[in-house]
C-alpha cells in the first residue's frame, strides 16, 4: 500500500506499542498509507482503532508511554523518524500541523487563545509582536470567530466547543502547513456546527492547496469530502480505496459492515445492523487478522500468518484473504 512517487506523506509499516502496567498494547501494526500533494485522505474506523495515535506518531507527539517500534514516516522524502529533535521540530506547525481531537483540552487553559496563536506565528514567521497580533486577528476572522479583538484575550473555558474547535483550526493553519491533520474536527458538536466546521476546513484546504488527513469515525462524513479513504480496525489498516470506489464496492468485510451501519445515499447495503462483537483487546495475543473473530466470512485460512495486502484493482488495497 505504498509507492506513489512524489507523495507528500508516506507512512510505511508503522507500528506503535504502549507500555502499560497491564502489559504491552500493540496499538498499531504495520500501517501503511500515503497522502498526495493537495489531496484529502479520510481515515475511518471504530473508536480505538488507532486513528489518533497514527496522527500523533506522524507529528512526533506520541504519549510518553507510547513508542514507535517499526516502520517509517516520510515527508517530502525525508524520513521524519530518523531526524534529530531539532530538525523534526522544524516540520511541526510549518510543514504539517494538526487540529487535535477534543479541542478544549488541547488548548492551554491559562493562556489567552490569541496568545497561543501568536506563539505559533512568532515561531514560524518573521512577524513582529504587533504584526503577529494582527495576523492572529485575521486568522480568527478567517475561521469565522465573531468579534476577534474580544476573543483574542479569551481563555478556552470561556469559549463554546465550536469556538474552541475553530481556534484549534486557526492554530493549525497559522504556520501555513502543506499538510493538515484534522482529528475528528466535528465530533461532539451539534449538527449545524459540525457542517460549518467541516466546510471551513475544506475551504481552508482548498484555498491554501493544503493536503489533508481527515480523521473521523463517521464513514459518511469522510466519504463526501475525501479523495481516498483509509479504513482502520484494531490497529490495522484494512482497506484503502478512492472514495467513490469504496462506497460502490467495498472489498473488506469490515468496510462493508461499516458502510452498512452508515446511512449514506451511495451505500449498497441498506440494513443498519451494528457490527457484531467488539474491537479485540490489543493486549492479548491476536490472530494475524484482527477482524477474524467478528467476521462472518472467516475461514481457517485466515489464521495463516502474514496478513495479506492485496492491490485488488489499481489504487485499491485490501488486507484480507477472503475479500468480497
Amino acid at each position: 500500500m505504498t509507492g506513489e512517487a512524489g507523495a507528500l506523506l508516506v507512512v510505511e509499516d508503522l507500528s506503535i506499542e504502549f507500555r502499560t502496567r497491564e502489559g504491552i498494547v500493540r496499538a498499531l501494526e504495520r500501517a501503511s498509507f500515503t497522502v498526495g500533494q493537495a489531496e484529502t485522505v479520510g481515515v475511518v474506523g471504530e473508536s480505538g482503532s488507532g486513528k489518533t495515535i497514527t496522527a500523533h506518531a506522524v507529528m512526533g507527539v506520541l504519549h510518553p508511554a507510547g513508542r514507535v517500534t517499526g516502520g517509517s514516516v516520510r515527508f517530502r522524502g525525508a524520513d521524519l523518524l530518523a531526524l534529530g529533535e531539532e530538525e523534526r521540530r522544524g516540520y511541526c506547525g510549518r510543514e504539517m500541523a494538526i487540529a487535535f481531537q477534543n479541542a478544549r483540552a488541547a488548548l492551554n487553559p491559562i493562556r489567552p487563545v490569541g496568545r497561543q496563536i501568536e506563539d505559533v506565528l512568532l515561531r514560524h514567521t518573521d512577524l513582529g509582536r504587533s504584526a503577529a497580533r494582527d495576523r492572529a486577528l485575521e486568522l480568527f476572522a478567517r475561521v469565522q470567530i465573531p468579534d476577534p479583538p474580544r476573543l483574542h484575550g479569551a481563555y478556552p473555558f470561556e469559549l463554546s466547543g465550536g469556538m474552541c474547535q475553530r481556534v484549534m483550526i486557526a492554530l493549525a493553519v497559522a504556520g501555513s502547513p502543506a499538510l493538515l491533520i484534522a482529528d475528528e474536527p466535528a465530533t461532539g458538536l451539534d449538527v449545524a456546527t459540525q457542517c460549518a466546521v467541516l466546510e471551513l476546513i475544506e475551504e481552508l484546504a482548498h484555498e491554501n492547496r493544503m493536503a489533508m488527513l481527515l480523521i473521523s469515525h463517521d464513514l459518511g462524513l469522510v466519504g463526501e469530502r475525501a479523495d481516498r479513504v483509509v479504513v482502520m480496525h484494531a490497529g490495522h489498516v484494512v482497506e484503502i480505496a478512492p472514495s467513490a470506489e469504496l462506497f460502490a464496492a467495498p472489498r473488506h468485510p469490515y468496510t462493508a459492515r461499516l458502510l452498512a451501519t452508515t446511512p449514506h445515499p451511495d451505500s449498497r447495503l441498506a440494513d443498519l445492523r451494528p457490527i457484531p462483537g467488539s474491537v479485540p483487546d490489543l493486549r492479548e495475543a491476536l490472530p494475524p487478522c484482527r477482524y477474524r473473530y467478528r467476521c462472518e466470512r472467516a475461514a481457517p485460512e485466515c489464521d495463516e500468518p502474514p496478513l495479506p495486502r492485496v492491490e485488488i484493482t489499481p489504487g485499491h488495497f485490501v488486507a484480507c484473504r477472503r475479500p468480497l
Partner: peptide, 8 residues
C-alpha cells in the same frame, strides 16, 4: 502536546 505539535 499541542504546543509541541506547533513546533514551539
Amino acid at each position: 502536546r499541542t504546543a509541541r505539535a506547533g513546533g514551539l
